[in-house]
Nucleic acid binder design. Structure first.
Lengths: 345, 345
DNA sequence: CTGAAAGCGCTAACAA
DNA sequence: TTGTTAGCGCTTTCAG
């Protein structure tokens, strides 16, 4: 059995309260007694029980983070940002992975709520209503999702897509395909919105190839549709999907970017390492994670005196790499006849 | 303020104990009263405080997992295995990332210990002594590390390396370079042991290129040393490093596998997707994660009546892919003179 | 500066 | 079957 505060108290010949004070409010106790207490605590290997402490103080010293899929590099980066901020503020971080299951989000939210002081809920897949219904008593900050009345940190996805489409348009692309992500993804919805808007603005055709799992296999599955669509460029929901596209296109001997251009989104580190490298819309993952924690901590500090649910929006930035999967639409003839509607050339 | 068991009790017109029983031991209460209690609980949105419950039952219903780096795909897979097993046994899982810092391991171990029933400590970097010294009162199962007296789940890394070396040897390679991982990695030590042994057995030269961070950049940094070493094949500590090697070799216009062969370890999903694909030693990550939880749960069930710290060892398996980064050493001439000691050709 | 006592939310004897 | 009581490990009044 692990030593409790009582053990330390009797070992040091003082009361429990003195031990407690010696540990958490050192100024309030006589240096001599404090030394005695610390010595005893050290000798016994005493570790305060944070759960018990939390029961009375209402603070656990823990933060929670819920993400859809830790094996997605996008979320790993978010984790790193959240972690850095949490550690900096002297909080422990509990991370939970929902495996892209909406029901797990609610469950985890509940399991976590009493054990942490605040929760960052990243890219939740649950419908607004379900999310609103969960009576969570710790503060929750949403990331990559905006819901009326809840604080959130988001990225301007629509603008990112606009940058991508304008880039393609400038290169002469007039027919652009989109490999969509999960229907339940707010970010995906924002991206589609941005795509539609800017396709219209630039006078391009936008082909929606359907919703695919946000994984490598999703891109593999979408590649043939992309080719058949007659688009000269494909934008993928994210980089992982774009890598899947590249892989399948490679197997089919379709040259990227000569025959078709491929764009990703997120700017995961892998996207710079492929040949060709991926042109991508960079999402400030690390910063967003950090911002979510900063927001969370500010809410905790203010107590329950909520201002009207602060939102923070970061911007996305198109990254065009040197040797990349994007080329002018007119640069090469499009062989094989799978482009139904070529550019001017 | 969130409703407590008292609120539910008074709302249902019963005592706290009845509420408690209605929720955790439904058989022991009158169906009618139980219904009343459940109704009240539902209406108030009552969620039991697991921390408070844990304080008295000694069980929290949580498991902990500590890994060096969640952005490493190897550990993502481990997480998935651990998570599946934990969820299957109705435990919540708390994951913590140490950022490859040994000190963070100890810290997290302490922070976690009272809030979970058991901990899986994956690939710890701390010295044996430090690890042994930590007085953790929850059960701890080590993964990818064996320490006297602690239960563990490991993989036969040495045998994996043996398979790799014999494969290379059969292809005529006689000088093999190794890009080592962290000095503090037990797995790396095991791999080096296997490499030395089998190099000796097959009469090959083994060139140790030094220790590198187990990341992409580590491989990039090691590539030039590999070329200069005169080896006809390089084995990397893991696949991520191997990908870094491939990338840098590509930039230097060195053809893989024509001029030099590259092998990885771990079998992360990315390794099958590169061109050429990576021949790699597959580590059963998911299964190991699962096994660690199974072991942990069996320890928890047995109480403190320890048998002498059970160990479980899984096996590694060389994966040779169709189009791969490994070729016979004699298949092509080695240009550029950076191989000091060519094969028979 | 220190100790005694109360109580955080919950469960587990022990009675009724 | 239900209520009463004690107490998990800790912090925090309130006295002294």
């Amino acid at each position: 059995m692990a030593p409790t505060i009582r053990d330390v108290a009797s070992a040091a010949g003082v009361s429990q309260s003195t031990v407690s004070r010696a540990l958490s409010m050192p100024e309030l106790v006589n240096p001599a007694t404090r030394a005695r207490v610390l010595e005893a605590a050290g000798r016994l290997g005493y570790q305060p029980n944070r759960a018990a402490r939390g029961l009375i103080t209402g603070r656990t010293g823990n933060l929670g983070l819920i993400v859809p899929d830790l094996s997605n590099p996008f979320f790993s980066s978010v984790v790193k940002g959240v972690q850095a901020a949490a550690r900096g503020a002297d909080y422990s971080l509990f991370i939970a992975d929902t495996d892209e299951e909406a029901s797990a989000e609610i469950e985890l939210l509940r399991a976590l709520t009493r054990q942490v002081d605040g929760i960052v809920l990243c890219s939740p897949r649950s419908p607004d209503d379900d999310l609103a219904r969960v009576g969570v008593d710790s503060s929750v900050v949403l990331m990559n999702r905006r819901i009326e009345g809840r604080p959130s940190v988001t990225v301007d996805n629509a603008d990112g897509m606009r940058q991508a489409v304008e880039h393609l348009s400038a290169l002469g692309h007039r027919r652009i395909a989109y490999v969509a992500g999960p229907r339940t993804s707010w970010s995906n919805a924002q991206r589609e919105r941005g795509l539609h808007q800017s396709a219209e603005d630039t006078g391009s055709d936008l082909v929606h190839l359907g919703h695919f799992p946000p994984r490598f296999e999703g891109g593999v599955a979408a590649a043939d549709l992309a080719l058949a669509s007659g688009a000269t460029a494909v934008i993928a929901y994210n980089d992982v999907v774009a890598l899947g596209l590249l892989s399948r296109l490679g197997s089919r001997q379709v040259s990227v970017p000569d025959e078709i251009s491929v764009l990703g989104c997120d700017d995961i580190s892998m996207s710079a390492m492929t040949h060709p490298a991926l042109t991508t819309v960079s999402i400030p993952k690390w910063e967003a994670g950090r911002a979510a924690v900063v927001l969370l901590l500010s809410l905790l500090a203010e107590g329950t005196a909520d201002s009207p649910a602060p939102d923070r929006e970061l911007s996305a930035q198109l990254i065009v790499r040197a040797t990349t999967g994007v080329a002018p639409a007119t640069s090469r003839p499009v062989p094989g006849g799978h482009s139904m509607k070529g550019p001017t050339g």
